[in-house]
Design a protein around this nucleic acid. Structure first.
Length: 343
RNA sequence: UGGGGCGUGGCCAAGUGGUAAGGCACCAGUUUUUGGUACUGGCAUUCGGGGGUUCGAAUCCCUCCGCCCCAG
C-alpha cells in the first residue's frame, strides 16, 4: 500500500514538478490548491483563479486527485493581520515565514491528515532529513530561510522533493513531462497574494497615512513622506528626495511619524554586528554557546559567520540594512537550526 | 539704495562662443515566494524672462524679474 501524500499545488512549476516526482516515486498523490487570498483592489487583480486552474490542469495531466482547501479566513487572521500590525508598529515583518509556520505546515498539514493523508509535500527548495531541515541543493534557490519556524514534528510529516534539484533541472523535468506550467514565469511577491507592492497592499488595508518629515543625518527636514510605515530600514527609493547622493533610511520613529535617512553608506546606524533576537525557534536543538555558525539575514542573502549567545546573535562582520521584524536564520553547515526575529 | 555673487530638468551640479557632462529622484525592465538591496535602460531641442551681437551663445552685451551676501 503506497503512502498517501497531499501536495500543495500553487499553480507554479515547482509544485507541479513536486507532484510529478512524488507520483513517479510511487506515492498515492493528491494535489491541493490552497485558496488563501482572492481579493482584488485598485491596481491589482488577484491571480488565484488562474493559479487554481493551472494547478488543476497539471493534476489532470498527472492523473491525480485534486482538491481545494479554502483557508482565506485563517490566512487573513494569521498572516495578513500579523503583517499589517507589524507594519503599524514600525517593523518590517516577513509574511511568508508566517505563512509557512501557520498555514502550510500547520493548517494545511492538519487538514490534510484529517482528510486522510499520511504526509504532505510542498515545492520548496529545501530538504528534510529525520526531522531536520536542510538547505536546498541549489544554493541560489535555497528556500530554507522561509521555513525556519516549522516544527520538527511537521517536518517529519513533510516532503520537499524539489530540494534535491536545481531550478534548471526542475524546468527540464517539467518540460520533459510536458506539464502545463513548464514555462510559467516564477511567481513573486507576497506568498499567495501575488505581485503587489507592499505599499499598495497596506494602502488598501489601512487607507492613506499621515505625512511626516524626512530627516537627514543632522536632523534637518529635507522632505515629507506619505506614511512612515511604508518605509523600511536600508530602503533607498520611494522617498522622492534627491540631491547628490542617494538617501538610505536609517530608522523610523513611529511616535513622531518621522523617517530618518543618510547619504553615508558607512553610517554606523546602517550597520549591525550584534543583534538581539526574539520569538526564537530552534527546530531541534539550541545552538551551542561557543560554536561558530552561519546566519542568513535575508532571503538569498549571503551566509555570514556568527555565534549565538542566548538571544544575542553576534556576527563576525557587520551587515547593512537589517530591519526589525525580519528574520535571522541560523545554519550549521547545511542544517537549518532555526532562528529568530531581529529586534 | 550702494558694492559683490547667483539663477542650467523635481533636487544637486559640470559647462565662459560651437551646438546641454554626471549624480540624486522619478519611470520602465531584470534579479527575487517578505521588506529592501543590486543591476540595465529611459528621462532638458533647452539653460530665470525679453531684446541684441555673431555663421553660431547656457556661455558676450543691454534690460527686466527673483534669490543670497556684505554694506548701511
Amino acid at each position: 500500500m503506497s503512502q498517501k501524500v497531499y501536495v500543495g499545488m500553487s499553480g507554479g512549476v515547482d509544485s507541479s514538478v513536486t507532484a510529478a516526482l512524488l507520483k513517479q516515486q510511487g506515492f498515492d498523490v493528491t494535489g491541493v490548491y490552497m485558496k488563501n487570498w482572492s481579493e482584488d483592489f485598485p491596481g491589482f487583480i488577484c491571480p488565484w483563479q488562474e493559479d487554481y486552474l493551472d494547478a488543476k490542469r497539471v493534476a489532470v495531466e498527472l492523473g491525480i486527485t485534486f482538491k481545494l482547501f479554502d483557508f482565506e479566513k485563517q490566512y487573513r487572521h494569521k498572516v495578513v493581520n500579523y503583517m499589517v500590525s507589524e507594519y503599524q508598529a514600525g517593523r518590517t515583518p516577513n509574511p511568508d515565514v508566517m505563512c509557512n509556520q501557520e498555514v502550510k505546515f500547520k493548517l494545511f498539514l492538519d487538514t490534510s491528515i484529517e482528510d486522510g493523508a499520511e504526509l504532505i509535500a510542498t515545492g520548496h527548495y529545501a530538504r528534510i532529513n529525520d526531522g531536520q531541515l536542510l538547505t536546498g541543493l541549489d544554493p541560489s534557490k535555497d528556500q530554507s530561510y522561509f521555513l525556519y519556524r516549522v516544527t520538527a514534528e511537521a517536518l517529519r510529516k513533510s516532503l520537499m522533493p524539489i530540494g534535491e534539484y536545481h531550478k534548471s533541472q526542475v524546468r527540464v523535468i517539467a518540460k520533459k513531462l510536458k506539464l502545463y506550467t513548464a514555462d510559467k514565469k516564477d511567481s513573486q511577491g507576497i506568498c499567495f497574494v501575488g505581485k503587489v507592492g507592499i505599499k499598495e497592499f497596506l494602502l488598501n488595508e489601512l487607507g492613506p497615512q499621515t505625512a511626516g518629515p524626512i530627516l537627514d543625518q543632522e536632523g534637518k527636514e529635507i522632505g515629507q513622506h506619505d506614511g512612515a510605515i511604508f518605509y523600511t530600514i536600508g530602503q533607498r527609493h520611494g522617498l522622492q528626495v534627491g540631491g547628490g547622493l542617494p538617501y538610505y533610511v536609517t530608522h523610523k520613529n513611529i511616535k513622531n511619524n518621522s523617517v530618518s535617512v543618510t547619504t553615508n553608506l558607512d553610517d554606523p546606524e546602517l550597520w549591525h554586528k550584534e543583534i538581539s533576537l526574539r520569538d526564537i525557534h530552534w527546530i531541534n536543538v539550541s545552538p551551542q554557546k561557543n560554536k561558530s555558525y552561519l546566519a542568513r539575514l535575508r532571503y538569498r542573502g549571503p551566509l555570514v559567520p556568527c555565534s549565538i549567545n542566548k538571544n544575542k546573535l553576534i556576527l563576525n562582520d557587520e551587515q547593512r540594512g537589517l530591519a526589525a521584524g525580519q528574520s535571522a536564520v541560523i545554519y550549521d553547515g547545511e542544517i537549518c537550526l532555526g532562528g529568530g526575529i531581529m529586534s
